[in-house]
Structure formats: C-alpha cells, structure tokens
Design a protein around this nucleic acid. Structure first.
Lengths: 255, 255
DNA sequence: GCTTTTTTCTTTCAATAGCCAACATATGCA
DNA sequence: TGCATATGTTGGCTATTGAAAGAAAAAAGC
C-alpha cells in the first residue's frame, strides 16, 4: 500500500471516529508503529490532524471548529486573526454584497463590520449569522445545508444550490492550506465543492489565512492562484514566503 | 482510550448535566480516580471547567453564542414552554426525522431532545441549530434563507425551496394564533409561506402553542384545523377552550 | 462550638506504554 | 550498480497511569 493511500485512509477513519491510537492504526494497516508515527507527524505538519500521546485526533482548528480554547494555538493566533478581520473590513464598502466563509478568521471579519451601512452578507456559518443578526443595516442570508458536526458550518447540496444562485461583489474565503504555486487546497474533500461555489459566485475573491497556513499543500485542490484576487494575512508571515507571492504579483495585505 | 478523548467526553458530559463527581467519572471511564483528577486539573488550567471538592462543574460563559439579554418573548411563559418542550420530546423516537419551526417554544423542544439517538432535525432557526450542534447523534439541517431582523429565524425563497424538497416524519410548528374553527393564522404574511411548506413536508403535524395563543385569529390563514394532527399546550388553558377542542376530537396534550 | 471520622485531594514513586533518533534493511528507479 | 525513499529495529528517554501515604476538607457526632 502506498503511503499516500494510507494517509488518506487515516483521514477517512478520523472523520468518522474522531480519534485513533497509533497501535490501532498500525494493526489495521499491518505496518510498524513507527511508520504510522511518521505518517502522523507529516500530516500534523500539514495541519490536517493533531497528534496526542498515544494517538491522534482530527484538527478541526478552524475550518470546522469553534470549541473555544481547547488547544493553545487557537489562543496564540487570536490576535492575528483579529487583525486580519480589521484589515478585511477596510476592504468592504457600504452597500456591498459580500460572502463570508465559515471559520474563526472570517468570524473576526463579521465582528469588524458591524457599523457598515446597507450591507448584504451571505454566509454558511450560523455563528457569523448570529453575530450579525442584530444589525439593522446588514441583511444576512444563510446558505442552509447540513450542520457540520461540532461546528457552526453548513455544507452539502443545499449550500451549493444557494451559492450557485447568487452573484456577489466580494467573497472572503478561509483556507487551511495555501501555496504560491498549488493555490488553495483542502484536506477534506467534502468541503471543496462549497468553497469552489463561493469562488464562482463572487466578482472579487479575497483569501484570508493566518501565516501558519502558508506553504501548506493538502490533497484536494480548491482553486488556482490566479483565481484569487487578493490575500489577507498577518505580519508573522515568513519573509521568503512573502517574496514568493510578490514575485508573482499577488496583492497580499499584511494586517 | 486516549487521554484527549476522555477529556472531550468529560466536557460533553458536562454540557448535558452541569455537574459530575470524580468517582462517577472514574467509574464510567474505568480509570483510576487520580487520572480523572489529573485530567480535571489540566482542563481547569485551560479554563474550560471548574473543579470543586468531590467533582467538577462547567464554566460555560465562553460560548460565543450565549445571548444574556433574553427578550421579553423568551421570558414570557418560560416554564410553560419548558413543559411543552418536554412533552414534545416524549413524542419523538430515536431515528425520527423531525422539523422544528423557529421560536422559543420549539427551542425548548430542542433542549429536551439532546440525548436522543440517530435523530435528523430540520430547522429554520439558527439558535435551535446552535443548541443541537454538539450532539453527535443528531444530524442538523438548516433551511437557509434571509435572517429575520432581530431574531434567529430564516425565511424567504431559499427556506421554501429546501422545505419543499424534504419529507419528514413529524413537524413541530409554532404559532401566535390558533382557533378551533379558523385553525392556525398569522399576523405576518411573509411567514405564511414557510409555515405552509413545513406542514406540507411532514407526515404528522404537531402544533405547539402556550395557552395564551388559543382563541386568537390573525389576518393571514396558515392552516386549517384538519391539517393539524396534534396540539401540545400547557395546563393553564381555559377549560371551555379545552372542551371546544375535545368536541372536535383534536388530540390535545396538556404538558 | 469542638473533636472525631470519613471523604477527597495532593504528592510521590514505580511500572508501563509510548516516543524519538539513529541505524539497518528493503524497495524502486535511473 | 548507486542513489533515494520508505519501512523496520533497537535502545534510551519521556509521559501517563495506578497505588499508596500523608494533608486538607467536609461530614458526623457530641
């Protein structure tokens, strides 16, 4: 069995069961525990999952997540995400029709646009919808769909249908992996379709990702680099990485 | 079992019941009490729970969602609505596909079904969706649509489209006006369509309304009496009113 | 109120299970 | 063959757990 195949199966398993021990995985694939550990370490580096003593759990850090402060990284990147939110808000004009993808970074965008006027916000995140619900001058449209386990994100056919019927000025899309050649990728194939529809629905695509997401490549392709009009990230991005994006003339904002 | 898995389950447990003892947790996970104590100490350090002598309680002020400022509607008839919620929960079997209309009474139904198994819940209320989002055994489908100002309700074309494509076992529909001859009526014409679609989508229609809603008639017709299979209300309903419904053989439950 | 008893908590230590790094072996490809 | 990559093996190190003993807190008895 190929390593990549094994990794895919590990992910599939984790999607269903959420946790797995190293020995359990080693047994079921008939490989040595060291091999599994190497797989898990590599996958952790990609940001796909989270290793713990004895096993592994899925990293629902932000694409699928919201459980407050279960790991320290969430707190660590809190300020960065907040800054990204403020920078994104500056790009939004009164009267805009925008789309906010589900996630913690985009939630910060929502919190930063409460004083805008005559805004229409489409979102697949019920937490974002909730945050905006008291704003008289903001019309909120929720995409509908299946609520992802343990998260605030909606996904599935209903989500896709609604996204396909909309035309928006700007879409703010989050991603767990962004690479200057490979573009936006995602570890979960189930979420690819919604993100692609978001990108198709808006005139201007703004990717939002804190610095830890850069240089990562995951299994499933979401969008090419040229489909992205602009990226917002935080100031802790690696200078070499920054240079690579500047070399290809990407409009990259540091919050 | 992995340590992190155990910690997650402790949290899940505390979300349902607010308190747990160390020995109780040690028993249920088949680990030594010292292990549980170590888990709890670590989790307290993270700020997710609060240790007490002999046990632990949850620290749930960090839920992004909690709306402390209950509006008047929410407080009105709180206990009655809670009772109605419990009565409705008794009518729901494991494995059911149900629909919960937006509203405070139906929110109480949601709170009363957290330990059901293998449930599918369709709702047009993002607060209800949020309440159910942590339940592993409940699949939540949100209808999508425009978020009604100052509320948690979704409405409009997207809502209607989704409702029309679903087939459910039971629909729990709230109403501000119910009359033994005129049936269900509503003061806001914008909401009529969604309610009618709900009624069309389910095999069994259960109207939920506290006693103050009885005898009222509003401008817009939603449904005839014969379209309702069952009504759940509270014990403060006027005896004469009760008699009228019994005379027409309505299956009326007093919570 | 005070003391005694019981329960729970903390600390410590030993045993086990899991981890990492280095090296060895195997596989595949040019 | 030689190189690169993937996997297995080994030994030393670390983390987690359960058990035990003393400290602290709560409950019971007077």
């Amino acid at each position: 069995m190929l390593a990549i195949e094994r990794k895919k199966l590990i992910l599939d398993y984790l999607k269903k069961r959420h946790y797995a021990t190293v020995s359990e995985l080693a047994d079921s694939f008939h490989v040595h525990e060291a091999t599994i550990r190497r797989d898990l370490s590599a996958m952790q580096k990609e940001g796909v999952l989270f290793r713990t003593h004895g096993g592994v759990t899925i990293n629902e850090d932000d694409e699928i997540h919201s459980e407050p402060s279960f790991n320290e990284r969430e707190i660590a990147e809190y300020n960065e995400k907040q800054q990204i939110g403020l920078a994104a808000a500056e790009m939004i004009q009164d009267g805009d029709h925008i789309l906010l993808d589900s996630g913690t970074t985009t939630l910060h965008i929502a919190k930063s646009i409460l004083d805008k006027k005559d805004l229409t916000v489409v979102t697949n995140d019920i937490n974002i919808a909730s945050t905006l619900r008291n704003q008289k001058d903001i019309k909120v449209i929720v995409t509908g769909g299946i609520l992802f386990p343990e998260s605030y994100m909606l996904n599935g056919k209903f989500t896709d249908d609604v996204l396909q019927s909309l035309n928006l000025h700007k879409a703010f899309v989050g991603t767990p992996a962004i690479h200057f050649q490979r573009g936006i990728t995602h570890f979960d194939d189930q979420l690819v379709s919604a993100k692609q529809n978001m990108i198709a629905a808006a005139r201007e695509i703004i990717a939002v990702a804190d610095h830890t997401k850069f240089g990562r490549v995951s299994l499933h392709k979401v969008a090419d680099v040229h489909q992205i009009d602009c990226i917002i990230t935080d100031r802790h991005i690696d200078p070499e990485e920054l240079q690579r994006w500047q070399d290809i003339n990407m409009d990259l904002h540091l919050a």
